[in-house]
Write a protein that binds this DNA or RNA. Sequence first.
DNA 1: CAGTTTATGTCAGCATTGTTGACATTCCAA
DNA 2: TTGGAATGTCAACAATGCTGACATAAACTG
Lengths: 170, 170
Amino acid sequence: MSDGRSGSGFGGESLLFLTDEQLRQGIEAMFFAYQGFTADPDRILAELAYGRAHHRAMHFINRAPGTTVNNLLSILGVTKQSLNRVLRALVEDGLVDSRVGTLDKRERNLYLTDRGRELEQRLSDAQRIRMRAAYKQAGPEAVQGFKKVLEAMMDADMRRAYADLREASQ
Amino acid sequence: MSDGRSGSGFGGESLLFLTDEQLRQGIEAMFFAYQGFTADPDRILAELAYGRAHHRAMHFINRAPGTTVNNLLSILGVTKQSLNRVLRALVEDGLVDSRVGTLDKRERNLYLTDRGRELEQRLSDAQRIRMRAAYKQAGPEAVQGFKKVLEAMMDADMRRAYADLREASQ
DNA sequence: CAGTTTATGTCAGCATTGTTGACATTCCAA
DNA sequence: TTGGAATGTCAACAATGCTGACATAAACTG
């Protein structure tokens, strides 16, 4: 594992020879970049006594209005109990509307209220500004590669969720 | 902010026109990919009653042996109190060695013990395997773009830390 | 159709890891 | 040498993971 090399065999099979050092750079880049990625919304959230968990919930409710708790937690990769706490706060504060399902009354369909949409917008805007700046700085070809590697890094079910979301917005 | 367009002006200045939708895909890719990125070490850590914080500390101590608490917390972006709790556990468990600084006795120089190196290796290996697979799947050109965008996404001080680490390993 | 099982969501309590505040020790500068 | 700054530790609190217990609704089974 730690011979500092990677590749399928002695040669020929793959053109990629990745040293442990190269891989470590990628790992560290991922770590540092994620800090920047979340920094701007985090600052806004801190003012409002909310956290990242609230942001994530609002993001995906906005993305798929009417989604259920069950669906949401599979996307977020947390337990329903953990998500529940966050949703309760958002509902109490009037940012999320939770309606008993019409077809299946066990389910709750989730929607952002006007105020919820407003905050989500504010958070997304902050995050998009950084994303846009990074994309511009890196250039168009880089963006392709960026997305490719990220997608390849996802677990299978997350890759599916990701594809579903993209297709959902036409 | 939300006109679905991005660019410096009406045209000509930039060749990149990024819709909010494109940016959102990047944001979601980042979120889902980070889950995958941390999933494998997380599984190992859970067995050992450690968390991500322990992994991060061990990673950077391994990367820069003899580093101080102060330096470490600036890299990790957490408070010294938060880091301290994690370090205390690692020292007690014999994975990290904390030596009073020779030049400045207020400082503590941190080193992995043999057992610490062993666990760090195990965690890194798991993470590298996924990274390597993602790189291979995405291809060499993609890797360049990936790193470029990530670096552009970092906060300035993290970009500096990232550069320092790379240079430190020749 | 009655009774049991499964699915969905809520409430309670615990663990990890972030935070701030108070403090001891050491260094440095006036 | 004395007061302030820097470094690190200890304590207590908050956010957000987790598991377990439970209520309700739906679905299945005989």
